[in-house]
Design a protein around this nucleic acid. Structure first.
Lengths: 217, 217
DNA sequence: TAGCTTGAACTGACCAGTCAGTGCAAGGGA
DNA sequence: TCCCTTGCACTGACTGGTCAGTTCAAGCTA
């Protein structure tokens, strides 16, 4: 009974309650995320979302105040999944006696797994995250903060523990690591889908651990 | 007489010819790139583009067959700027007797400068590059190829010359480097605009050269 | 003069959001 | 046991508005 589902992946592997309404909302998230990732927010119509979710258009408006609100709730929902997945990966290593660098490595792995499981959600974040003049700008800032902070915290602990150089710039390094995983994963999915996740992980891990320039450990 | 211009940056610092028509097309590119970066392709109207460019709507259709065609030509135009900028940076170092790793470092710098100069163009690529089911999908594949290849070539030469470990995965490492620069730069512009380009460059450079995990060279 | 631009009017498709009405499960009164 | 009520969840035809793309007579400029 794998939690993983088909190509695009389901957004809500764990569900909270079991009311009829929640099931409908979940179906709508599901439908919206793939459509918006494929076509963008404004060229995705509410009719399409409703049709793919197998409900009537009115139901969309019964459950969400507007198309915008549906999207914002989707963003918040998704980032919670990512942040907790990264946090869990880091905690498991740290609690098991691993180093902070090992934890970073585990987060890279978790990031790749997340993107492989929810490619549509990821694509959607990438398209919106650095856009200016958007209605949901503030939502996105919070969302970004939530994810980046997890990485920054581990970096900070690693510096404090002497594992990483005191000279690294924590916010910028966190961004860079994030971007490295993000773009490598998206490229992998879109343009080199034949590669295994282990290949991708190994390449990124090598970069993190400074084994690209060829000095062995 | 700096080539750099205002906030969004002009797309066409070097122009090829001087006909009246070319000037109009350039104005339209200019207007389209910022509007689309801000709002996305489909919520940007042709009327808006014409207005921002200071031309009549009829002129848009006199110069481009459709809104789609305008956008595709914009993508092709932009990637040429990026690829040649990266190539030039790499060549300058190599021709001047620098190592391939130095060339990579220079490309990081050139990438950051490019993104700082053309943030709207960059945002637009990021939003579209990994999107599926798009009319201009094939245009984008070519465009991505053009940029990634420049990085891959330098990596390959570096491996051949023994500067980089033979074990690195060239396509994946190129993607990762690309993503690292891209995301760090966008984050810098959007969320930490007070930082200097030198700070950002230093942080990325450290990652490239494996000085994050603290082993001095 | 020929190539380019203007601007306004028009068409037809498309789409977010509305709303009067349906279906149905649970409760309660007789 | 049967009927009636309540209200949540859902439905889908409809509305008012928007926008890509067209057309064209007239003006400008190299």
């Amino acid at each position: 009974m794998s939690a993983r589902t088909a190509a695009t992946g389901t957004i809500t592997p764990m569900d909270s309650s079991h009311t009829r309404r929640d099931a409908t909302r979940r179906k709508l998230f599901e439908a919206a995320v793939t459509l918006i990732a494929e076509q963008g927010f404004s060229s995705t119509t509410v009719d399409e979302i409703a049709e793919r979710a197998g409900v009537a258009k009115g139901t969309v408006y019964y459950n969400f105040a507007s198309k915008n609100v549906l999207f914002e709730e989707l963003l918040r929902h998704g980032i919670e999944l990512l942040a907790s997945s990264l946090q869990t990966a880091a905690d498991e290593v740290t609690d098991g006696g691993g180093t902070r660098v090992d934890a970073l490595d585990a987060m890279i792995r978790a990031g790749l797994e997340f993107i492989a499981r929810y490619p549509a959600l990821t694509q959607l974040y990438v398209a919106e995250l650095w856009r200016t003049n958007r209605a949901w700008q503030s939502t996105l800032m919070v969302v970004r903060e939530r994810a980046i902070t997890v990485v920054e915290n581990v970096l900070r602990e690693a510096v404090a523990g002497g594992e990483l150089s005191e000279e690294i710039d924590i916010p910028l390094t966190a961004s860079a690591l994030f971007g490295m995983v993000l773009v490598a994963a998206l490229d992998w999915q879109s343009y080199q889908p034949d590669r295994s996740i282990d290949d991708v992980h190994a390449a990124l891990s090598r970069l993190l651990q400074g084994r690209v320039t060829g000095r062995p450990a």
